[in-house]
Structures are given as structure tokens and as C-alpha cells.
Design a binder for these strands. Structure first.
Length: 484
RNA sequence: GGGGCCAUGGUCUAGCCUGGUAUGAUUCGAGGUUUGGGACUUCGCGACCGCAGUUCAAAUCUGCGUGGCCCCA
């Protein structure tokens, strides 16, 4: 076996460089486009993203959301209607100057102010509610901090839902449904573990009553915010005058929520969490190619034609069963092909030579465990599907294990520091997640270079003792970590 | 928000201090020998980030711009 490794850098030793290198080597992205914060997503990455979108969209539709496609630009007037929203987003908006007297327009940094203008027209009666709609969109934010491909780009790919309800209770139930959707898709399919964190008041979405973000962690111990859901209550319905007539013929403002999973950023987590020093490891459910077929060729005169025919038929049969394959007929040597498809993160590899045609047994290599087993040609599609399901269960379990180990309970500042230095998330008692806790949070940032992520959004955790920073009675249990 | 480092064929890299024909590997294309875990070989294509300045002469020195990476807040 060759001594060469695929990467110069190991993921555990230097995640940052490993990440840059894997994106390039596996042809996921290309950073040479030449505009800061904008990257090209190459076919291998685009195919993963395509599958992720399909799965996420089907989850939206199953939960009663309708698709829509809104313009990329937002009129300046709309954008400015909700005051805290303007204030929060203004610094990162790309503005487009138009010709002549036409008003300037914003490249959407999020689309509340696009949707709600129309909701004002579309929502008339209690019969229209709940009103649940989503779109697949490119979003533009002028990030000033260091940009990283997929992790923090100035243009990213996401889905955003904007929902309207008759009551606050209904809206709050939607927030919980959003968290369940994150669990069902991002965790249960893509294998990205997270904590639903209710953001402190000083860190909520501009225009929201409260925000629940899904925080995941990368191998370097840094927190990455994944989908967030927001109860925006009536802040926008007031600004955009989105009203309905209730059963008693009274006009009422709707209660609203919004939710935004960034698919391109989730891909960053997928790559970071599952990948290893041999390259990508992609869950079976979203792998661009689920099986690589490598024919072992020995020369025209030694039956290559039969081997190729056999391999082509196998690819065809698997295709009919909705299993995507890559049949590698290039003239590289087998060993090189093996390494190539491993690096690309294809879950399974099948080798086919004269021996296999004789025996009807195919060697099947499994990417994550790197073991080679033997499978029968008969019923192979079924076998692969079963192995694929097991494959994903294994990846998710491994990711969960990695994640569960990352939360450290801390009783002193020193313990918090130790947790953070050990690339972990610190959990500790804290005075308050309301505005009055902001000073202590600023202290955490300054002294520990960490961000208070918030309190659990899915359950209550009981605080005890005093806040470690101001000494007042602790009211909440918060989580803090180094942030991207 | 502040600071540092860097930019040479597709990729990685030598040369830069001390200005004068740009090094090597890999990739890519063509051929041959090969093919059950990264083969070998011959030939070929291909580069000094942009603009300005200094100079007889700039990859090399200076300034500005653009892009990338890292550290700190």
C-alpha cells in the first residue's frame, strides 16, 4: 500500500488548513473567482447541495409550506419599514443604484421585507391562516469579518420560510415545528448535531421578539450557527399592515415567524464533521454518487469487454433503483481510482474483474469504516440500500458522540476557560439572558474571547448559585463558546 | 474593528536580501510499457495578481489597489 496520504494536513491537527485543502481537492468549491467572499461551487458540491435542497424542501412541503420565488431585490422603502430590522441589517446590505429617478434597491440580506409587502395583499381573512410559504434563495450579506468558503460567504444559499398566524400561540408552535424540522433534516439526514439555543435578548434577529438558533460545532471547537427560527410577533405585520378579518369581523394583525436554513453553510458542517484524513465522507442520502464502480481491466485480449459490459449493466440496474453511481472507465490504474473515489467521499466502491463475473460475488468497500465485504450480485440494489441506511446511522452516531463530548459543565471562570481552551462549549449559571445580562456577556467576550450563545430553546434548565461574573443570583443556564 | 504574513504555469514551489535569459515537482495533452491499493518512460503545452513610480533594465526596490491566509478585539 502506498505511503502517500491524500492530505498534507490532518483534520485534527489543523482543521482550518484541512478544510481549505479538501474543498479544493474534492472539487467542492473554487475560491479563485476573484471577488472577496464569493466562491464558485463546482459540480461535486452543487450535486450535494441539490440533494440537500430537495430533502429540505420536501420537509417544508410536508409541514404545509408552499413554495414561492421572490425577486432578489428589495425596494429601499420596504427595507426601511421595520426600524430594528433596518438597524441590524444596514451595515451588511449591498445596494444597487438604478438609472435615473428610480429608487435604489437592496440585494436581499433576508426577505421579510419582500414577503410581507405581498402578505399585506394576500392575507385577508382568518380562512387564509395559517399562511406558510418558503423560498429557495441566494442571499447577500456584506460580511466584514474574514470570509470562509461555505462557512461565511457574502453570497450564500438558503431556504427561508415566512409564516403568518392568527394567534401568538400558533406562531410559537411554529417555532417549535421549525426546531423539529432542523432535527429531522439537518440532524437525522445530514448528520449534523446541534443545540437549539434561545439567543440572549442582545443577540436576537433584528426585528424579532426572540430567536432560537441551532448551534453546531466544528472540529476546531468553534461554534457555527446553523438554521435559526424567529418569533417576530407583530413587529413586521404592524410595519407592513398585514391584517386579517377574524370570525367576529374584527381586523387583526397577524403573528409571524421566520426560519432560515442556509444549505451552503450546512454543507460546510457536513464536510467538517464527517470528513477524515482521506477526504470527504458524505452521508449516503446526499452523496452525489453513492457507489463507485471500478472495473479491473487486464487488456482487450483478456476479456475486458465482458468486464465493461458487466459493469455497465450493474450501473444501469442500480440507476433504475435510484442509486447513483460513478462507473470509472478512465485509463488510470485501479489503485489510483480507489484513492480518488475515497477522497470524493463516495460511500461504497465495487470492484469488478473476471473473478467477480465467475463467482457472482462482488467486493464492496465501505468508505467510513474502510472495510471490504463481499456482496452477491443477486439483489444488490436492496443490499446497497440497506447498507446505505446503516452507513448513515453510523455517521450520525459518530457525529453525535463527537458532539456530546463537547459540552462541559463549569462552576468557575477557570473551568470555563479550560473548557474553551479544550475546544469545548461551556455550560454555566449566569445572571440573565435579558438586557441586564448584556454587561456580563460583554465581560465573557472580552475576558474569555467567547460568545454567550444563549439558553436551551427546547427545554428548561435550572440555574443554581450566583452568576460567575456579576455575583448576582443566577437566573439562567447559558452556553458559551468560541464563535465563527 | 485592530495587527501580521503572503501573491511566480491548473496546483505546489526555487529565484527576491544584492535588479540583467525564471528552477523543480506535479497536473494537463500525445505516444509506449503497464493495470486486483497512488506505476514507469519519452515528447509537448503552460507562469512572475493589477496599476503607477524608480531605473538603461523590475518577478526582484517603492507606493496604491485587488485577492488569500493567520492572530488579536
Amino acid at each position: 500500500m502506498g505511503k502517500k496520504t491524500t492530505f498534507n494536513i490532518s483534520k485534527s491537527e489543523n482543521f482550518s488548513e484541512w478544510y481549505s485543502e479538501i474543498l479544493q481537492k474534492a472539487e467542492v468549491t473554487d475560491i479563485r473567482y476573484g471577488v472577496k467572499g464569493f466562491v464558485v461551487i463546482r459540480p461535486w458540491g452543487a450535486r450535494i447541495i441539490d440533494k440537500m435542497y430537495r430533502l429540505y424542501e420536501s420537509a417544508f412541503q410536508r409541514t404545509g409550506h408552499d413554495p414561492a420565488i421572490f425577486p432578489t431585490v428589495i425596494p429601499e422603502e420596504n427595507f426601511k419599514k421595520e426600524s430594528s430590522h433596518v438597524k441590524g441589517f444596514s451595515p451588511e446590505v449591498f445596494w444597487l443604484e438604478q438609472k435615473g429617478d428610480e429608487d435604489k434597491v437592496a440585494l436581499r440580506p433576508t426577505s421579510e421585507t419582500a414577503f410581507y409587502q405581498m402578505y399585506n395583499l394576500w392575507i385577508r381573512s382568518w380562512r387564509d391562516l395559517p399562511y406558510k410559504m418558503y423560498q429557495k434563495a441566494n442571499i447577500f450579506r456584506y460580511e466584514t469579518k474574514a470570509t470562509r468558503p461555505l462557512i461565511r460567504s457574502r453570497e450564500f444559499l438558503w431556504l427561508e420560510s415566512h409564516n403568518a398566524f392568527a394567534t401568538k400561540k400558533d406562531a410559537e408552535a411554529q417555532v417549535l415545528e421549525d426546531i423539529r424540522m432542523t432535527e429531522a433534516v439537518m440532524h437525522d439526514i445530514f448528520g449534523v448535531p446541534f443545540l437549539p439555543m434561545k439567543r440572549p435578548q442582545w443577540d436576537k434577529f433584528p426585528g424579532a421578539e426572540y430567536t432560537i438558533g441551532s448551534d453546531s460545532i466544528l472540529p476546531d471547537g468553534k461554534i457555527i450557527q446553523q438554521p435559526s427560527t424567529h418569533l417576530i410577533s407583530q413587529h413586521f405585520s404592524e410595519a407592513f399592515d398585514v391584517k386579517y378579518v377574524d370570525k367576529n369581523e374584527k381586523e387583526r394583525l397577524v403573528w409571524q415567524t421566520c426560519y432560515g436554513p442556509a444549505v451552503s453553510r450546512i454543507l460546510a458542517s457536513v464536510i467538517a464533521i464527517h470528513g477524515d484524513d482521506n477526504g470527504l465522507v458524505i452521508p449516503y442520502a446526499i452523496a452525489p454518487s453513492q457507489v463507485a464502480i471500478v472495473p479491473i481491466l487486464k487488456g482487450e485480449d483478456k476479456g475486458d469487454k465482458k468486464v465493461i459490459e458487466f459493469a455497465e449493466k450493474l450501473a444501469e440496474d442500480l440507476f433504475k433503483e435510484n442509486i447513483t453511481t460513478s462507473l470509472d472507465l478512465s485509463d488510470k490504474r485501479p489503485g489510483e481510482k480507489f484513492f480518488h473515489w475515497e477522497m470524493k467521499g463516495v460511500p461504497f466502491r465495487i470492484e469488478i474483474g473476471g473473478r467477480e463475473i465467475e463467482s457472482g460475488e462482488l467486493p464492496l468497500f465501505i468508505r467510513d469504516t474502510k472495510e471490504k465485504i463481499s456482496v452477491k450480485v443477486d439483489g444488490i440494489a436492496e443490499t446497497i440500500k440497506n447498507l446505505g441506511a446503516e452507513y448513515d446511522v453510523r455517521l450520525i452516531a459518530k457525529a453525535d458522540e463527537f458532539f456530546s463530548d463537547k459540552i462541559a459543565d463549569c462552576k468557575t471562570k477557570e473551568e470555563i476557560k479550560k473548557a474553551l481552551d479544550g475546544k469545548k462549549i461551556a455550560r454555566f449559571s449566569f445572571c440573565s439572558a435579558e438586557e441586564r445580562g448584556a454587561d456580563c456577556a460583554a465581560f465573557v467576550e472580552k475576558e474569555l474571547q467567547a460568545r454567550v450563545m444563549g439558553t436551551r430553546g427546547d427545554k428548561k434548565e435550572k440555574a443554581s448559585g450566583k452568576c460567575l461574573f456579576c455575583g448576582k443570583k443566577a437566573g439562567v443556564v447559558v452556553y458559551a463558546g468560541k464563535s465563527y
